[in-house]
Simulated scan of single mutants.
Amino acid sequence: MTFTVNAPINIGSLRLKNRLIMSPMQQYRGTPEGFATDHHIEFYSRRAKHVSLVIVESTAVSSNGRLFHNDIGIFTDQHVEPLRKITEAVHSQHTPIFIQLSHGGRKASPDVTKQLVAPSAIAYDDYYGTPKSLTPAEMKGIVEEYRLAAKRSVEAGFDGIELHAAHGFLLHQFLSPLSNTRTDAYGGTPENRARFLKDVLLAIRAEVGRDYPVIIRVSATDFVQGGLTPEDWVQMLKPLEPELDAIDVSTGGLLPIQPSDVYTAYQLPHAAAIKQHFSIPVIAVGKIYSRSLANRILEDQLVDSVAIGRPLLEDPDYAERLLIP
């Protein structure tokens, strides 16, 4: 069977009208307390018409895990109502919307974070400084913050959740051996390094049930020897596949290292390598900006869906051009 960007697809229990997804992009327009604003309502609803799914920018599960001083959060019940206004606006365009749940860990903003935390006391760089190594009790507390964030996500009207395990934030920090040197049950082997992610995922599943879509964003490579590779991700995520509904593949962010070259569809080979091992949909992102390229990727079954980000910042109707034959 041949697929194009216009073909529908299921992510878990949710039927999407096409295979074009709006990737999460930080807006830097939250209040000092992490509340969403009218900007977010207008921004997301304006871009929701043509894509099959909107994924909201990184949303903090903890006041101690915010990525920026002006990001948005879902770490109190008071955050629900401003977020509900976004979901209602996007739903008015007949498009579903996911929330991306995150905790910055050692890359949380020093401007609004009382204490940087991480699996191990290893600094990202001098700006962020050395984090505190989490105790098992503190880890349980963060798992509970994820569960409560999932509960609030449902209350706010989101149609699904994306767990942010990419770009060097807390879940990614636990998964990579470069940032996790623990010697307890949460460090060492790939299975142990994936244990914290498993705890978070199962806590969310206990809250939302199996029919509620939960996907994960990953950084397929750390761009350095000894870091994570697509093969490592397969090993860690395959046991969790029964609890996941899709894998959204990005790259980098664990270290202050940039890819040597950013070219058209530069992250696609990593996504394609991961897709070979999973039956759930795999989403590719990264400079896939033309209909012909997106269709060729889907026709060759390299991935199942394509996400676009930056072009939508400049042109809210950009997705329409990728959908019109």
Rank of each mutant, 00 (worst) to 15 (best):
F3Y: 08
A7Q: 09
P8C: 04
L16A: 05
L20D: 02
M22S: 07
R29V: 10
G34A: 07
T37V: 08
H39I: 13
H40C: 05
E42K: 14
R47I: 06
R47G: 04
H50T: 09
V51R: 03
F68I: 06
G73M: 07
Q78K: 15
R84D: 08
E88T: 08
E88A: 10
V90E: 01
H94N: 15
I97A: 03
L101M: 10
A108C: 08
D111T: 13
K114G: 15
K114F: 09
K114L: 15
Q115L: 14
V117M: 10
G129W: 09
L134S: 04
K140R: 15
Y146T: 04
S153M: 12
V154R: 05
F158I: 08
G168H: 00
R195Q: 14
R195E: 06
F196K: 03
L202H: 12
I216S: 02
S219P: 05
A220S: 11
T221V: 15
G226Q: 09
L228T: 04
D232Q: 06
K238D: 07
E243L: 07
L244S: 07
A246E: 02
I247Y: 00
P256N: 14
I257S: 08
A272T: 03
A272L: 01
I274R: 00
K275E: 06
F278P: 10
I288E: 02
N295F: 08
R296F: 00
E299W: 03
R310K: 11
Y318N: 07
P325G: 14
